[in-house]
Every structure is written in structure tokens, then in C-alpha cells.
Design a protein around this nucleic acid. Structure first.
Length: 464
RNA sequence: GGCGGUGUGGCCGAGUGGUUAGGCAGAGGCCUGCAAAGCCUUGCACAGCGGUUCGAAUCCGCUCGCCGCCUCCA
């Protein structure tokens, strides 16, 4: 039943065929040249959601996310820092995966590195040359767009209307400005590889088409990435697949941009928000919630304010879960939640459902209907678990001395000895608990004061 | 110039031809010694102008604004 918007058809389509029990997914991963920013996290979190959602419906999902570890920018950076490209790539790849761990993103099943697949790329390039679809000129090998049967399927654009060179100078040696490099020759002093067309490096589009086909086969279920990959990257992958007579991806999906002040977050504008910093300030779960509460295809505004807002929402959920034990999840409610996700990953509606149950559960606690409240808690927990947002810490456990302090404080309160009561509160809060007096007694929660309210030098250890 | 997207209440952010999206923040109330929690109530929201309709924020037209892509980008 899962549906997803397919960039190719421009409509929401059935993602799974009847009887299908496996799902192969290729997501364009990072060029490991710098630290990830909030835009990168959204892509990874979105496909992590899709993967979990499909798997929990019984599908065996195979997720491949490539790592581009050879690239001009990596080399430039290495030169700037007087180190090797390999050192830059391995440093930022390590940061990438550690950061994704903190977002609650499961590692992909495969993470092919471009440098390990150069021979396979060379074979593909040779096939394209043999098919008269690619040509060799002075500085490399280019794909001849004119020989692609259907160029522009993804972009949906009349290519005679494009303005080549709008932003980048066109190599005049190419037969057509739209032709793109499969192999770029470089000086032997630079990082590169031997090939029939001289020492050089593979083109990015060739890297992904090669690794996806090699690892997932000539046809696979879904190819994904950010909106900005539609053109040229995915269009050009598809062009090569056509030339290679490979069916390639059955569906294409693209995630909307993260924006800041209404503008796409990108390095060239310089308005990036470092993902690791966001996680440090607000916690990985709050950042993940910030992503998932929006619809994945819409642009998403991200700032300290919106992240703080996300953390406040998360605290609302966690405070509720702290109020008591888990009972039995309400299957119908959980189904309503997952049904929303089934509908083109409609997480906003799913969260609307989730928060309804948080509110109902809180009301049940206030009414002292603890069994029903526990079932609500289990329901909400099951929803969170479905999307990878369940609390990662253990249930609230209260040490005996804190329980005693709570008891003593209750006594002091009854005696109207508020000085003692407040002193005991200080002890309890120092242990990391927050106190809430209700009609029926004192409840303890985890201290979840919003970190943004603290001076930034004290905000170094967000929860979880 | 071409193509695509978008404009929702203080903010984030869904949705849809007619019943409250949801969250955050704000206001009032309940509870309360206090308290960062919880519950209840509350906000002439749907860019503008026309049109279709019994009824439009939701459909159509026009106008305006913003954003993205047109070989760095997630």
C-alpha cells in the first residue's frame, strides 16, 4: 500500500508490487569534503524513515549509500591543509557516520567508495564508447547527449531552452554543451587512476550509475537524493543507463531543501547550519523530529528557533512517557499513524495523530486512569519506535535516596515547612530530575529544560 | 529566457469544496505554597483581484511576491 511521489512520473505511485518482499534502494551519499550540515541530515533521516517503514511491513530492504571520496573539492581542501585527499576523505567520512548515528539513522547495508570502483567505471565508460555514445577529446571522455534515446525524462524540460553556461563556463571542445564528462584527465601529480584514456578521474555521474548497478543490479526499486540532484546528476545517471541499455531505477524520489530565512541552505550561499553543532545544542532526537514533522518534499525552515521548538515538542512527548509504565499499544491508533506514513511519507499527519494520543494520555493520568494511560504511553512509544524516535535512554529510574527525598519533601510540604521542601527540591533537581506536584502527589520527570535557554557554554551535553 | 515549486494565524508546519490539523510561543482559567509539567478555553489564518458554486483557503483566470534548477550542491 505504500505510496511515494515519483519524480519520473510526477505523481504519487504505488511503491511496492504485489508479492514483493525485497526493496532495493540507492541514495546518493556524501562527498566527504566537509562536515555535514542540516540539509544533509534531512536526506539521510528521510530515507532512514522510508527504510524503517518498509522493513516494518515485512520487506527486506537493501540500502546502498555511496561515499564520494575522490573529488576536486576534496583535493583542493587537502592542498589547503597540506595533507592528502585520502586523509580529508577519511576524516569527514568518519564525522559523517558518527553524526548520522546521533540522528538515530541506521547505517546503510553498503557504503561503496568511489575509489574502490574505478575499474568498474572504466568498463562502463568503454561500453559507452563502444556504443558510439561517448567520445574522447583532449581533456577526457564525454557522453554524447544526442545519442541518448530520451534525455530529460527526469528534468522534464525542453533542452533547447536550457541556457548552458548560465553558471559555469562551457568547455568549447565538447560536441554539445550538455555533454558531460565520464572521465576527466588530470596531471599525474594529482590524485588519479590509469585508464585507456589517460591518467585521470571518473565523473561523478558515472560513479553513481556504476555503483548502483554493480551493487543492486540492472534494475532496482528506488533511487533517491536531494532535489538538487535531479539535474544534472540523476538525469545524467539515467542518460548513461539508457546508453548502457540498463532499465535502472523503477522509481525516483527527491527530498526538499532545508532553508534558512527562506533560502536554500548551501555552502555557496554560506548559510549552512552545521549538523553536528545542531545535535550538540538540541540533541539528535530533536533534530530528527524537526525533520520528520515536516513533509519530506516541502522546503523546511531550520534555525535555532525552529530547532528549539522541535525540542520543546519532543519534551512534551518524553514528559508524557515519563509519567508511568507502558501498557499495551492500541493497534488501531498505531495503524492510523503508520497509515499516514504509508501515504507518501505523510509524517505531519502522523504527528498530529501522535500528539492527539499524548494529550489523551495526559488527561488519563490526570484522571488517575493509570491502566488506560499506560496503554496510551505504549501506543505513543510504538509510534515513536516506528519512525526511529523512541527514547534511547532507559526508563526513568529513581534512586532510593531520591525517593526518600521526595517523601521527605512531601512531609515538609504537609507541615508547610516550605524552606525544607525547597531545599529537598534542590537536592532532587541536582540529581537531574524535575518535580511536578499533582493533586495526588509528586511526579518526577527527567530535567528537560530547553538547552537553548542556557548560556551556550553550558549547553554541551544535550540529553541522550 | 526556459522549467519547476511556493505564498496558511506571532513562528514552524499540514490539509482540504461545507465539521479543530498538530507543535511552539502568547492570553485567560483549573491545579498549585511555589514550580519548567498537565488539563480546559482562546486567536476575524489561508498573498491580491475577479470568476464558478447554495457554499472556496480548497476549482478556474489574472496580478503580485518569494524560492529552486538550467552541469558545485543533499
Amino acid at each position: 500500500m505504500t505510496t511515494l511521489f515519483d519524480t519520473m512520473t510526477g505523481s504519487v505511485t504505488q511503491l511496492i508490487n504485489p508479492g514483493q518482499d525485497t526493496f532495493s534502494l540507492y541514495v546518493c551519499g556524501p562527498t566527504v569534503q566537509d562536515r555535514p550540515h542540516l540539509g544533509h541530515g534531512r536526506i539521510v533521516a528521510t530515507y532512514d524513515l522510508l527504510r524503517r517503514h518498509l522493513r516494518q511491513q515485512g520487506l527486506q530492504v537493501n540500502l546502498v549509500m555511496n561515499v564520494t571520496d575522490v573529488d576536486d573539492k576534496i583535493i583542493t581542501r587537502a592542498a589547503q591543509e597540506s595533507t592528502s585527499a585520502e586523509a580529508i576523505a577519511s576524516r569527514y567520512e568518519a564525522i559523517w557516520w558518527e553524526t548520522m548515528d546521533e540522528l538515530g539513522v541506521e547505517r546503510p547495508d553498503s557504503t561503496p567508495h568511489a575509489t574502490d570502483w574505478v575499474q568498474a567505471m572504466i568498463i562502463k565508460i568503454q561500453l559507452m564508447i563502444d556504443a558510439q555514445a561517448a567520445y574522447v577529446i583532449e581533456d577526457g571522455v564525454y557522453l554524447r547527449i544526442a545519442s541518448v534515446p530520451h534525455y530529460g525524462l527526469l528534468t522534464k524540460q525542453a533542452f533547447d531552452q536550457l541556457q548552458p553556461g548560465n553558471r559555469v563556463e562551457v568547455n568549447q571542445a565538447k560536441e554539445s554543451p550538455l555533454d558531460f564528462a565520464l572521465w576527466k584527465r588530470v596531471d599525474v601529480s594529482e590524485l588519479g587512476f590509469d585508464s585507456p584514456w589517460g591518467y585521470g578521474r571518473p565523473g561523478w555521474h558515472t560513479e553513481c550509475v556504476t555503483m548502483s548497478i554493480e551493487l543492486l543490479g540492472p534494475t532496482f526499486d528506488l533511487h533517491g537524493g536531494g532535489m538538487d540532484l535531479i539535474f544534472p546528476h540523476h538525469e545524467n545517471e539515467l542518460a548513461q543507463a539508457q546508453v548502457l541499455k540498463t532499465p535502472f531505477a523503477r522509481h525516483w524520489a527527491h527530498v526538499g531543501f532545508v532553508e534558512m530565512n527562506g533560502e536554500k541552505m548551501s555552502k555557496s550561499i554560506g548559510n549552512t547550519f552545521d549538523l553536528t553543532e545542531a545535535i550538540r545544542l538540541f540533541g539528535g532526537r530533536a533534530v530528527r523530529l524537526a525533520y520528520l514533522r515536516a513533509y519530506y518534499r516541502s522546503p523546511l525552515e531550520m534555525s535555532e528557533s525552529t530547532l528549539n521548538d522541535a525540542l520543546a515538542s519532543l519534551n512534551r512527548i518524553d514528559n508524557f512517557l515519563d509519567r508511568g509504565p507502558y501498557g499495551r499499544p492500541e493497534a488501531g491508533a498505531v495503524a492510523a499513524f503508520t497509515r499516514a506514513i504509508d501515504n507518501d511519507l505523510d509524517t505531519p499527519t502522523a504527528f498530529s495523530v501522535l500528539f492527539d494520543h499524548v494529550r489523551e494520555g495526559n488527561t488519563l493520568y490526570d484522571l488517575r486512569q493509570f491502566d488506560s494511560a499506560a496503554d496510551k504511553a505504549a501506543t505513543v512509544h510504538a509510534m515513536l519506535d516506528w519512525i526511529g524516535l523512541a527514547p534511547t535512554t532507559e526508563r526513568l529510574s529513581i534512586p532510593p535516596e531520591i525517593s526518600e527525598a521526595v517523601e521527605a519533601r512531601q512531609q515538609a510540604k504537609q507541615n508547610r515547612d516550605y524552606a525544607t521542601a525547597d531545599a529537598l527540591r534542590a537536592v532532587i533537581e541536582a540529581a537531574g530530575f524535575a518535580i511536578f506536584d499533582t493533586k495526588d502527589g509528586t511526579e518526577l520527570r527527567k530535567d528537560r529544560r530547553l538547552v537553548i535557554d542556557r548560556p551556550s557554554n553550558e549547553a554541551s551535553s544535550p540529553e541522550n
